[in-house]
Design a protein around this nucleic acid. Structure first.
Lengths: 231, 231, 231, 231
DNA sequence: GATGAATGAGAATTCATTCAT
DNA sequence: GATGAATGAATTCTCATTCAT
């Protein structure tokens, strides 16, 4: 995804290069700039300079700032989804798949902080057209998690216990927790992707198992249950 | 926080009003505009118009776009923290406090979607000065959740089982999940604050209880555990 | 003419005062502000604050920024002319009158640097209406110097030697030299009004005396005269 | 320096031109506008229009109003110093050099009234950064005059008679007189650069010669000397 | 007499975007 | 294929000026 520091993204600047390569350089520069400054604050001038090309060339290849941003979002979203899918072996049990997927997710976001920032922070704060792009990717991931939970539930023969909407909420919570942990892992020195994934599995899997068994936490029982514990 | 639709925020427009009132109207308009367009895309013109005043008055009272944004963040952060605190009774057991806090949190964010958006989406994507403002609030909440988990762990006499960093990670995950669920609840019609809170408690509390008992999920055990279940 | 430092100009602030007094306070503040920031950069807000009154009051008394500036110019010009005239005794010989006038001039400008700055630097750089105001005063002074030179010439019976325009030019040069020296004296620590006046008299009077005797410097004679000197 | 009237400064408007040419056109327009309206009152819009280009182009080439003003000051200062230096032949006697320099000075200021106004009136009234720019040029000229006076004094073997500060004051007065005469010559129809120079030489040189001989005017002697003359 | 509240008009500056070469 | 030259349209911010009380 290009250098993560401030140096020019293009390898050989000023050279003639095939269009596809130039385009990638521009998008590398764009992702970096968007991630650090935000969509509005990033200027086409900066992006072109960082990419080592002239501004008109950026327009020639990518048409407009909007399209450039969209292209960045799509590229980064695809890369993320691909990385997660590559980490999973479909035949394995659900919890193992979840673990593998989370590990891949944390690894990828750690290695591509700018790309992740574009997806997580920037795309969602700049109006529908962009947010929709990310929502699509998120839906894909959420659907996969849905599946996983559903499979596990079926394995455990507890279909009736989980309504569709409940599953959707859980997936949402899981993804949110993962996103939050990704940021935390990136900001806290010494936290590895594996550790983040383990934390999340510990946090989530037992809850999911309980739910599948039909055990639910309920406010009315809180006093009792807690009292029981502290007894 | 003012009307959530596009109509002017001020009650009596064009009228002379005491400064304090006007200031609130301006901040209402600003929160709404920032939430929907983002910091950079929101123009002072739009904000002033929505507030029903002229631009110079906004500057007279709030000095600059930066300060206006900061003022909004502070106001919304205070309001959110206050709402959560108001929902909690300190003497109750930890899970009950968590439930109450989450319910209050989801209720407040549902009632103030724009304020929540400013805190969650906008403030964090527009540079350190603003992000720091929110980080402070988040730290406050995370610390509280930390406390709760720690208390519960102590009640359950499982001190050795949970390292400090593990607790911090869990709190982080919980808060992230809550934030994500808040957005989901806001966007999904018919999801109440209670339902969101219940989903999260179901998801989280069982996991936390297990952890406190020392049960951990581990990748090496995944195949077995899953196999056992499907047996 | 008001404090020369940055402290409020008005003695008793917030008090009820007769209109004439308030007006002077405002003009003191205005002169100070105009002198230091220039006409355009000085804002009515600053002036009002420095004067210790509210802005509308400034408008009530002095109508507009233009009129305020004009009033300042007039007041300072009158004060300067009055000071110079007060320093002169009409019966005395021309050189003595010139000396006395210059001394008074340098003393007044040293004591009223802001007033002098308004006249010398500001009024002349902000378009005709204001420049004309100062030009009138300058003409008055120049005319007086004209007179003095004329008188001296007549005393020395050298009427034929000095054309009217030549006298005008000399007066102009003298006044210009005086203005320049005033600025220099204000900026150079330790230069007194007397010293400035002496420098100028030394510089100017001998030349004037020579001229009145009919001695003129001419380019054609330059080589010779200089050669003669160094012989 | 471009047309001195109100018509556009650029020769070929709207055309594509090399950057260097456009820059000069912009600076021509800027000098004219600054001279007539003052720094603050001159708007970038006006300058751009007069230059026959769009405002963004002015910013692209000259960065800001401040830098544009500074660039104008530097250009005009250099041009003035160059013109004076070009008028002087170093080997000639001091009074001849002074005469030549003054003539060149008056000629240049007469031909570039706007440039002169920027240096003399505008730059000095708009804060340190700009005033310093002109002060540097003025120091250069003053140093040269200092030199001349010093040389003449040495030729006449009268070193002890003139203290450093006295020389500085004299140079100041001379330059002030010249500046004043330049304005007078510009405003009075039919006054040539030569006439202005002659007036100033007549005014100044005799005084300087006297001073070098040690003759000084003194107030105490005024009555007598004048009385003697009028006898 | 005196002021807090309010604004229309304009200023500097930036940016996405397009030609002509 | 690639770029120097150029701009229309905003955007943030300031200021002189006026009411209503």
């Amino acid at each position: 995804m290009g250098a993560s520091d401030g140096t020019p993204v293009a390898a050989g600047r000023g050279k003639r290069m095939p269009r596809a390569v130039r385009e990638q350089q521009m998008m590398d520069a764009a992702v970096q700039t968007f991630a650090r400054l935000g969509y509005r604050a990033a200027s086409m001038d900066q992006i072109a300079e960082l990419a080592g090309v002239s501004k008109p060339l950026v327009y020639l290849y990518l048409n407009s700032k909007d399209e450039l941003f969209t292209a960045c979002i799509r590229r980064e979203a695809s890369a993320l989804v691909a990385a997660v899918q590559a980490g999973i072996e479909p035949g394995l049990p659900a919890d193992r798949q979840l673990w593998d997927g989370l590990t891949a997710f944390f690894r990828h976001t750690a290695e591509n902080p700018d790309g992740w920032s574009v997806l997580h922070s920037q795309a969602r704060t700049h109006g529908e057209p962009f947010a929709a792009e990310v929502a699509a990717m998120r839906a894909e991931i959420t659907a996969f998690v849905n599946h996983l939970i559903g499979d596990a539930a079926r394995e455990a023969r507890c279909d009736p216990h989980l309504a569709d909407r409940e599953v959707a909420g859980l997936a949402q919570a899981l993804v949110g927790a993962a996103e939050s942990l990704a940021a935390w892992a990136n900001d806290t020195p010494g936290v590895s992707a594996k550790e983040a994934a383990a934390t999340l599995m510990n946090f989530a899997w037992a809850g999911l198992e309980n739910l599948m068994k039909g055990d639910r936490w309920s406010p009315s029982a809180a006093a009792t249950s807690s009292a029981g514990k502290s007894r």
